[in-house]
Amino acid sequence: MTIKKAIILSAGQGSRLLPLTRDVPKCMIDFNGRTLISWQIAALVANGVTDIVVVTGFRTERVEDHALQLYRETGARIRTLFNPFFQVADNLGSCWIAREEMDQDFIILNGDTIVSDEIVAKLVSGAKDAITVTVDVKPDGDYDDDDMKVNRDESGRLHHIGKRLLPPDTNAESIGMLAFVGEGPAIFRNQVDQMMRTPEGVARWYLRAIDIIAKGNRVGTVSIEGLEWQEVDFPQDVDAANALTEKWVSQGRYGA
């Protein structure tokens, strides 16, 4: 299987990283000579993704200019969509802005997560269901309040996803990257549209849509346990992401 399209949700400022993100969007933080979004795009392009849509918000001009630079460097078609209500809506709103781009098989990726090319490859090869969620597993089962927790069965089917899952019901965590194939894009697009028509829609995470979909449809999972990724939410995450990308640079990955 090949998936040619990706949508990256990069509208937020990253206020938990202030003052680092006072004037710089989170996706533009530099890690060893590459921005966070550049690392993401390198992993996607390495797996044949050639059409990339970036949903922007905070300091959109910086991201737009950088997207043009990355287009020139990679040859991939990299476009931006501005989310004008990024300050008052959560990322379900960014999905709604990008709904017309959900017109074929695609990958969606949170704009604050650095992933390796192996992770993208594993998701693409494992996307057997209409919707597939990439998950990691903590051997000690110690998932914290900020983890997007997942309950799945032995077949890999996802039953629930959300930050409020109780420890006994949690056996994995979402890394914020999903694949939609076949009917998946239409199923997701329709659910996003329904939720955004409600008063509380703007305050929702898009993974809430996945939780609702999973009640009536099979949502699959792919485990990337043991592979390298790093979410960048807090100051300590910046140090961890620097260490990870420093290793990748020393290995010469993605031509870095």
Rank of each mutant, 00 (worst) to 15 (best):
M1F: 11
A76R: 06
G33T: 00
M195S: 11
F234W: 08
T221K: 05
D112A: 06
A67E: 05
M102L: 15
P25D: 02
D136G: 15
C95W: 01
D147Y: 10
P185E: 09
V49G: 04
V249T: 06
A256P: 04
K122C: 08
V181D: 06
E173F: 13
Q251Y: 03
D136M: 09
W248H: 09
I114W: 05
V202H: 15
R16A: 14
V124L: 10
D129W: 15
T2A: 12
L81G: 01
K4G: 00
D23E: 10
E231D: 07
A186I: 01
N83I: 02
A6M: 06
D193Q: 13
P199M: 06
E64L: 04
G182Y: 08
E154N: 10
K149S: 08
D169I: 02
V115Y: 07
D90C: 10
I114P: 12
S223C: 08
E173L: 14
P235V: 02
G12F: 12
G48V: 06
V45H: 07
D140E: 10
E183R: 13
V55E: 05
K149I: 05
Y71C: 09
K247T: 03
I37K: 12
K215A: 14
Q13M: 08
G162P: 11
I213H: 14
N83S: 07
V137Y: 14
V49T: 03
A214D: 11
A89E: 08
A121Q: 13
G255I: 03
E200V: 13
I119C: 09
T113S: 01
A256E: 14
D23R: 00
P25C: 07
F188Y: 13
D90K: 14
D142N: 14
V238R: 03
K149V: 04
P167K: 03
E61L: 00
E118V: 06
I52V: 06
A76S: 04
T60P: 07
R72W: 12
W248E: 05
D237M: 01
P199K: 07
I97H: 01
D51M: 02
E100V: 01
V219C: 11
A240Y: 02
V150K: 07
F106Q: 09
T74L: 06
D211Q: 09
S223M: 09
L70I: 03
I119S: 08
D239P: 00
A186Y: 02
K5W: 04
G184K: 11
R197D: 12
L166Y: 09
D146V: 02
A121Y: 04
Q69G: 00
A98D: 07
S125Y: 00
E100W: 05
I175C: 12
A43T: 03
D51K: 06
G33Q: 01
T21N: 14
T245C: 05
V202A: 15
T74F: 12
S10K: 13
A43P: 12
A203P: 00
E154T: 04
A186G: 01
T74D: 06
Y143M: 10
P185K: 11
F188G: 00
P25L: 00
I224W: 07
A121G: 15
T221E: 09
G75N: 07
F234N: 13
E231I: 04
M102S: 14
T74W: 12
V232S: 11
A179M: 09
